[in-house]
Design a protein around this nucleic acid. Structure first.
Length: 289
DNA sequence: GACCAGGTGTCCG
DNA sequence: CGGACACCTGGT
Protein backbone atom coordinates (compact mmCIF):
# COMPACT_ATOMS: atom_id res chain seq x y z
CA UNK A 1 0.00 0.00 0.00
CA UNK A 2 1.10 3.51 -0.72
CA UNK A 3 2.50 5.38 2.23
CA UNK A 4 0.42 8.51 2.44
CA UNK A 5 0.76 9.57 6.05
CA UNK A 6 3.94 10.77 7.70
CA UNK A 7 4.85 12.42 10.94
CA UNK A 8 6.12 15.98 10.63
CA UNK A 9 6.42 16.76 14.32
CA UNK A 10 5.18 15.69 17.69
CA UNK A 11 1.65 16.89 17.04
CA UNK A 12 1.38 17.01 13.28
CA UNK A 13 0.55 14.49 10.63
CA UNK A 14 0.85 15.20 6.92
CA UNK A 15 -1.56 13.55 4.54
CA UNK A 16 -0.11 13.82 1.06
CA UNK A 17 -2.11 11.97 -1.52
CA UNK A 18 -3.61 13.24 -4.78
CA UNK A 19 -6.75 11.43 -3.72
CA UNK A 20 -7.13 13.42 -0.53
CA UNK A 21 -8.47 16.96 -0.88
CA UNK A 22 -10.00 18.36 2.27
CA UNK A 23 -11.74 21.20 0.45
CA UNK A 24 -13.43 18.84 -1.98
CA UNK A 25 -14.44 16.53 0.84
CA UNK A 26 -15.92 19.50 2.70
CA UNK A 27 -17.83 20.50 -0.43
CA UNK A 28 -18.99 17.01 -1.26
CA UNK A 29 -22.03 17.32 0.97
CA UNK A 30 -21.55 14.04 2.81
CA UNK A 31 -20.51 15.64 6.09
CA UNK A 32 -22.03 18.65 7.82
CA UNK A 33 -19.47 19.23 10.57
CA UNK A 34 -16.37 19.82 8.47
CA UNK A 35 -15.97 23.53 7.92
CA UNK A 36 -13.39 25.91 6.60
CA UNK A 37 -12.58 28.42 9.29
CA UNK A 38 -10.57 30.67 6.99
CA UNK A 39 -7.22 30.70 5.16
CA UNK A 40 -7.07 27.02 4.40
CA UNK A 41 -7.91 26.03 7.97
CA UNK A 42 -10.55 23.42 8.63
CA UNK A 43 -12.29 22.18 11.74
CA UNK A 44 -13.86 18.75 11.87
CA UNK A 45 -15.91 17.25 14.66
CA UNK A 46 -16.63 13.54 14.44
CA UNK A 47 -16.97 10.62 16.83
CA UNK A 48 -16.76 12.94 19.86
CA UNK A 49 -13.44 14.38 18.72
CA UNK A 50 -12.28 17.61 17.16
CA UNK A 51 -9.55 17.77 14.53
CA UNK A 52 -8.01 20.87 13.00
CA UNK A 53 -6.53 20.57 9.53
CA UNK A 54 -4.95 22.91 7.04
CA UNK A 55 -4.08 22.66 3.41
CA UNK A 56 -0.40 23.25 2.62
CA UNK A 57 1.50 23.00 -0.64
CA UNK A 58 2.76 19.60 0.49
CA UNK A 59 -0.52 18.11 1.53
CA UNK A 60 -3.06 18.34 4.29
CA UNK A 61 -1.70 18.85 7.78
CA UNK A 62 -3.66 17.49 10.75
CA UNK A 63 -3.11 18.75 14.30
CA UNK A 64 -2.79 15.35 15.82
CA UNK A 65 -0.10 12.94 16.97
CA UNK A 66 0.63 9.99 14.72
CA UNK A 67 -0.61 7.39 17.15
CA UNK A 68 -3.89 9.22 17.73
CA UNK A 69 -4.23 9.78 14.02
CA UNK A 70 -3.86 6.11 13.26
CA UNK A 71 -6.37 5.25 15.94
CA UNK A 72 -9.02 7.92 15.39
CA UNK A 73 -8.74 9.32 11.87
CA UNK A 74 -7.05 6.93 9.49
CA UNK A 75 -10.16 4.82 9.17
CA UNK A 76 -12.45 7.84 9.28
CA UNK A 77 -10.82 9.25 6.16
CA UNK A 78 -10.74 5.77 4.60
CA UNK A 79 -7.00 6.11 4.03
CA UNK A 80 -6.57 2.37 3.61
CA UNK A 81 -8.43 2.43 0.32
CA UNK A 82 -6.90 3.06 -3.09
CA UNK A 83 -9.10 5.72 -4.67
CA UNK A 84 -6.79 6.06 -7.65
CA UNK A 85 -7.60 2.44 -8.44
CA UNK A 86 -11.31 3.19 -8.24
CA UNK A 87 -10.88 6.07 -10.68
CA UNK A 88 -8.78 3.87 -12.92
CA UNK A 89 -11.64 1.39 -13.16
CA UNK A 90 -13.98 4.00 -14.64
CA UNK A 91 -15.20 2.91 -18.05
CA UNK A 92 -13.20 5.02 -20.54
CA UNK A 93 -16.22 4.84 -22.83
CA UNK A 94 -18.15 6.92 -20.34
CA UNK A 95 -16.64 10.29 -21.17
CA UNK A 96 -18.79 12.26 -18.78
CA UNK A 97 -18.05 10.04 -15.79
CA UNK A 98 -14.36 10.09 -16.68
CA UNK A 99 -14.38 13.88 -16.58
CA UNK A 100 -16.30 13.95 -13.31
CA UNK A 101 -13.93 11.49 -11.66
CA UNK A 102 -10.89 13.51 -12.70
CA UNK A 103 -12.53 16.74 -11.55
CA UNK A 104 -13.49 15.21 -8.20
CA UNK A 105 -10.14 13.56 -7.53
CA UNK A 106 -9.46 13.99 -3.82
CA UNK A 107 -12.93 13.15 -2.61
CA UNK A 108 -13.19 10.16 -0.28
CA UNK A 109 -16.08 8.49 1.48
CA UNK A 110 -15.80 9.21 5.21
CA UNK A 111 -16.72 6.66 7.86
CA UNK A 112 -19.22 8.67 9.84
CA UNK A 113 -21.31 7.69 12.81
CA UNK A 114 -24.56 5.99 11.66
CA UNK A 115 -26.75 7.79 14.20
CA UNK A 116 -25.40 11.23 13.34
CA UNK A 117 -25.70 10.43 9.65
CA UNK A 118 -29.28 9.25 10.03
CA UNK A 119 -30.41 12.38 11.83
CA UNK A 120 -28.45 14.70 9.57
CA UNK A 121 -29.97 13.29 6.40
CA UNK A 122 -33.48 13.19 7.82
CA UNK A 123 -32.98 16.89 8.52
CA UNK A 124 -31.51 17.46 5.05
CA UNK A 125 -34.71 16.97 3.09
CA UNK A 126 -35.81 20.10 1.25
CA UNK A 127 -32.97 22.09 2.77
CA UNK A 128 -29.85 23.75 1.45
CA UNK A 129 -26.49 22.63 2.81
CA UNK A 130 -25.97 25.81 4.89
CA UNK A 131 -29.42 25.33 6.40
CA UNK A 132 -28.64 21.69 7.23
CA UNK A 133 -25.41 22.71 8.92
CA UNK A 134 -27.22 25.35 10.91
CA UNK A 135 -29.74 22.79 12.20
CA UNK A 136 -27.09 20.22 13.06
CA UNK A 137 -25.00 22.78 14.93
CA UNK A 138 -28.06 23.96 16.84
CA UNK A 139 -28.78 20.38 17.94
CA UNK A 140 -25.17 19.85 19.00
CA UNK A 141 -24.81 23.16 20.83
CA UNK A 142 -27.99 22.62 22.81
CA UNK A 143 -28.00 18.90 23.44
CA UNK A 144 -24.54 17.54 22.71
CA UNK A 145 -21.93 16.82 25.36
CA UNK A 146 -18.97 19.23 25.47
CA UNK A 147 -15.84 17.68 24.01
CA UNK A 148 -12.96 16.84 26.32
CA UNK A 149 -10.30 19.58 26.10
CA UNK A 150 -12.59 21.55 23.76
CA UNK A 151 -15.37 22.72 26.06
CA UNK A 152 -16.73 25.18 23.51
CA UNK A 153 -17.31 22.41 20.97
CA UNK A 154 -20.00 19.81 21.23
CA UNK A 155 -20.45 16.22 20.22
CA UNK A 156 -23.49 15.14 18.28
CA UNK A 157 -26.27 14.48 20.82
CA UNK A 158 -26.92 10.89 21.84
CA UNK A 159 -30.21 9.16 20.90
CA UNK A 160 -31.36 8.98 24.55
CA UNK A 161 -30.88 12.72 24.94
CA UNK A 162 -32.95 13.57 21.89
CA UNK A 163 -35.57 10.94 22.70
CA UNK A 164 -36.31 12.76 25.95
CA UNK A 165 -37.13 16.03 24.16
CA UNK A 166 -40.37 17.24 22.59
CA UNK A 167 -41.07 18.40 19.06
CA UNK A 168 -40.95 22.01 20.22
CA UNK A 169 -37.26 21.75 21.06
CA UNK A 170 -36.53 20.47 17.57
CA UNK A 171 -38.59 23.19 15.96
CA UNK A 172 -36.53 25.67 17.93
CA UNK A 173 -33.54 24.24 16.04
CA UNK A 174 -35.29 25.11 12.74
CA UNK A 175 -36.14 21.50 11.94
CA UNK A 176 -39.67 22.47 10.92
CA UNK A 177 -41.89 19.53 10.00
CA UNK A 178 -38.89 17.20 10.39
CA UNK A 179 -39.13 17.65 14.16
CA UNK A 180 -41.50 14.72 14.49
CA UNK A 181 -39.31 12.56 12.27
CA UNK A 182 -36.17 13.13 14.32
CA UNK A 183 -37.99 12.64 17.60
CA UNK A 184 -39.47 9.41 16.27
CA UNK A 185 -36.08 8.17 15.07
CA UNK A 186 -34.51 9.03 18.42
CA UNK A 187 -37.17 7.06 20.26
CA UNK A 188 -36.67 4.07 17.97
CA UNK A 189 -32.92 4.08 18.55
CA UNK A 190 -32.98 4.91 22.25
CA UNK A 191 -35.64 2.30 22.90
CA UNK A 192 -33.67 -0.43 21.18
CA UNK A 193 -36.26 -1.06 18.46
CA UNK A 194 -33.66 0.12 15.96
CA UNK A 195 -30.15 -0.95 16.95
CA UNK A 196 -27.94 0.95 14.54
CA UNK A 197 -24.79 -0.80 15.75
CA UNK A 198 -26.18 -4.28 15.31
CA UNK A 199 -27.51 -3.43 11.86
CA UNK A 200 -23.95 -3.25 10.59
CA UNK A 201 -23.94 -7.04 10.45
CA UNK A 202 -26.67 -7.04 7.82
CA UNK A 203 -26.06 -7.26 4.07
CA UNK A 204 -27.02 -4.23 1.98
CA UNK A 205 -30.60 -5.12 1.09
CA UNK A 206 -31.54 -6.10 4.65
CA UNK A 207 -29.87 -3.00 6.06
CA UNK A 208 -31.76 -0.88 3.54
CA UNK A 209 -35.12 -2.30 4.60
CA UNK A 210 -34.29 -1.99 8.30
CA UNK A 211 -33.34 1.67 8.03
CA UNK A 212 -36.54 2.48 6.17
CA UNK A 213 -38.28 1.94 9.51
CA UNK A 214 -37.00 5.31 10.71
CA UNK A 215 -39.57 8.06 10.19
CA UNK A 216 -38.55 10.61 7.60
CA UNK A 217 -36.05 8.18 6.10
CA UNK A 218 -37.03 7.18 2.59
CA UNK A 219 -35.00 5.69 -0.23
CA UNK A 220 -32.67 8.63 -0.71
CA UNK A 221 -31.96 9.28 2.95
CA UNK A 222 -31.39 5.59 3.70
CA UNK A 223 -28.95 5.27 0.82
CA UNK A 224 -27.02 8.27 2.16
CA UNK A 225 -26.93 6.73 5.63
CA UNK A 226 -25.70 3.44 4.16
CA UNK A 227 -23.01 5.12 2.07
CA UNK A 228 -21.75 7.68 4.59
CA UNK A 229 -22.63 5.99 7.89
CA UNK A 230 -22.11 2.32 7.08
CA UNK A 231 -19.56 2.70 4.30
CA UNK A 232 -21.58 0.63 1.86
CA UNK A 233 -19.79 1.84 -1.24
CA UNK A 234 -22.12 0.11 -3.68
CA UNK A 235 -24.97 2.44 -2.69
CA UNK A 236 -25.89 5.16 -5.17
CA UNK A 237 -28.11 7.82 -3.59
CA UNK A 238 -30.25 9.68 -6.11
CA UNK A 239 -30.98 13.28 -5.29
CA UNK A 240 -32.12 16.08 -7.55
CA UNK A 241 -28.56 16.79 -8.71
CA UNK A 242 -27.86 13.19 -9.65
CA UNK A 243 -31.24 12.87 -11.35
CA UNK A 244 -30.39 15.98 -13.35
CA UNK A 245 -27.14 14.35 -14.51
CA UNK A 246 -28.80 11.05 -15.38
CA UNK A 247 -31.45 12.92 -17.29
CA UNK A 248 -29.12 15.21 -19.21
CA UNK A 249 -26.05 13.03 -19.78
CA UNK A 250 -27.61 9.59 -20.00
CA UNK A 251 -30.95 10.43 -21.57
CA UNK A 252 -32.86 9.46 -18.46
CA UNK A 253 -31.58 5.89 -18.67
CA UNK A 254 -29.84 4.10 -15.82
CA UNK A 255 -26.15 3.79 -16.72
CA UNK A 256 -24.02 0.83 -15.51
CA UNK A 257 -22.14 3.09 -13.08
CA UNK A 258 -25.17 2.98 -10.80
CA UNK A 259 -24.66 -0.74 -10.16
CA UNK A 260 -20.89 -1.00 -9.67
CA UNK A 261 -19.26 -2.04 -6.41
CA UNK A 262 -17.90 1.50 -6.01
CA UNK A 263 -21.04 3.22 -7.25
CA UNK A 264 -21.17 5.44 -4.17
CA UNK A 265 -17.72 6.86 -4.79
CA UNK A 266 -18.58 7.65 -8.39
CA UNK A 267 -21.87 9.15 -7.25
CA UNK A 268 -19.83 11.60 -5.18
CA UNK A 269 -17.73 12.55 -8.20
CA UNK A 270 -20.86 13.11 -10.28
CA UNK A 271 -22.55 15.08 -7.52
CA UNK A 272 -19.55 17.29 -6.88
CA UNK A 273 -18.98 17.91 -10.59
CA UNK A 274 -22.61 18.83 -11.18
CA UNK A 275 -22.85 21.14 -8.21
CA UNK A 276 -19.56 22.85 -9.00
CA UNK A 277 -20.69 23.53 -12.53
CA UNK A 278 -23.94 25.00 -11.23
CA UNK A 279 -22.24 27.24 -8.70
CA UNK A 280 -19.29 28.49 -10.73
CA UNK A 281 -21.20 31.16 -12.68
CA UNK A 282 -22.63 32.61 -9.47
CA UNK A 283 -19.29 32.98 -7.76
CA UNK A 284 -18.22 36.56 -7.22
CA UNK A 285 -14.75 37.83 -6.44
CA UNK A 286 -14.06 38.22 -2.74
CA UNK A 287 -16.92 36.00 -1.69
CA UNK A 288 -15.67 32.48 -1.07
CA UNK A 289 -18.07 29.56 -0.46
C1' DG B 1 -44.84 37.39 -2.84
C1' DA B 2 -44.10 33.24 -5.42
C1' DC B 3 -40.85 29.86 -5.77
C1' DC B 4 -37.27 26.68 -4.59
C1' DA B 5 -34.05 23.91 -1.68
C1' DG B 6 -29.64 17.16 -1.64
C1' DG B 7 -37.60 14.17 0.13
C1' DT B 8 -41.06 11.78 2.58
C1' DG B 9 -45.70 10.40 4.09
C1' DT B 10 -50.23 10.18 2.62
C1' DC B 11 -53.94 9.84 -0.31
C1' DC B 12 -55.98 8.75 -4.58
C1' DG B 13 -56.83 6.39 -9.22
C1' DC C 1 -47.93 0.61 -7.54
C1' DG C 2 -47.28 5.53 -9.97
C1' DG C 3 -48.54 10.33 -9.57
C1' DA C 4 -50.13 14.48 -7.06
C1' DC C 5 -49.76 17.30 -2.93
C1' DA C 6 -48.64 19.29 1.55
C1' DC C 7 -45.01 20.30 4.54
C1' DC C 8 -41.36 24.11 8.15
C1' DT C 9 -38.15 27.54 7.16
C1' DG C 10 -34.77 30.59 5.16
C1' DG C 11 -33.10 32.53 0.92
C1' DT C 12 -33.63 34.85 -3.91
Amino acid sequence: MKHTVQTTGVDRVLISDPDFDIQKIADSGQCFRLNRSGNGEYTLIAHDRLLRLRQTPYGCEADCGEEAFRRDWYGYFDLGRDYAAIRARVDPGDAYLSRAAEFGRGIRILRQDPWETLVSFIVSQRKTIPAIKFCVEALCARYGDPLPFEPSAYAFPRPETLAALGEEEFRACSLGYRAGYVLGAAKLCAGGALDLGALNALPDEALFRALLAAPGAGEKVVNCVMLFGYHRLARFPRDVWINRVLEREYGGATPPVVYGEDAGVLQQYLFYYERSAARAPRKRAGLPE
